[in-house]
Amino acid sequence: MVIVALDHVPHCYSHEDGAVIYGLVASALKSEQRVTLSLAGVTDVPSSFVNAALVPLLDRYEFDEIKQRLVIADATKTIADVVRRCFGATKRPPRMAA
């Protein structure tokens, strides 16, 4: 399943936007084996978005399972850096696809 973020929120700049994306990703992970979150058209995201959209997945899934089942596609290097920072220095973020 592919979730295109900008199909569901006007931008990926706020905690509220992140909460919407979290709901979609969490729901998809329940029913799908693998989920791709496409950030096509998004040039940058603040940590508040990532902290709301992705980090709460750790409350439901082990980190390794998130890495195996969630792919973040169409992310800029800047976005990838924010995701890595939010997931912490000791853990690796979900796989990033070009």
Rank of each mutant, 00 (worst) to 15 (best):
R34S: 09
L24W: 05
L29P: 01
I72R: 00
P10F: 07
R69D: 10
L39S: 09
S47W: 02
H11P: 00
L24G: 06
V9M: 12
L37M: 06
P10G: 07
H11C: 04
P94D: 05
V83E: 13
R85Q: 12
H15N: 11
D64G: 02
P94R: 09
L54I: 06
A52S: 15
V83F: 13
A53E: 06
A40R: 08
G41H: 02
A80V: 03
K77N: 14
F49M: 05
V42F: 08
I79D: 10
G23D: 15
K30C: 07
I66W: 06
L58K: 13
Q68E: 15
Y22F: 15
A53T: 00
Q68H: 08
S27D: 14
M1L: 09
C86W: 02
S27M: 03
I3V: 11
L58W: 01
D7S: 11
A75Y: 06
L70G: 09
S31K: 13
D59I: 00
A89Y: 13
D7H: 14
D74I: 03
A52D: 11
Y22Q: 05
V42A: 07
G88R: 01
S47K: 11
L39R: 01
A73K: 07
T76D: 09
I21P: 09
Y22V: 01
L24R: 03
Y22R: 12
Q33I: 10
A73S: 15
R34D: 14
A98N: 14
K77Y: 14
T90E: 15
T78A: 15
L6S: 10
K91S: 13
A98W: 10
L70Q: 05
R60G: 12
F49Q: 03
L58C: 03
P46I: 02
V25G: 10
T90H: 15
S48V: 10
G41L: 04
E32I: 00
S31M: 03
S38A: 06
V83C: 08
Y13W: 04
A89D: 13
V82P: 00
L37D: 05
G23S: 14
F87Q: 01
G88A: 05
S14I: 01
H8T: 02
V55F: 11
D59C: 01
S48E: 11
M96S: 06
R84C: 04
D74C: 09
A40Y: 04
A75K: 00
I3R: 12
F49W: 04
S14L: 08
A26H: 12
V2W: 11
E62W: 00
I66G: 07
T43Y: 10
A75Q: 04
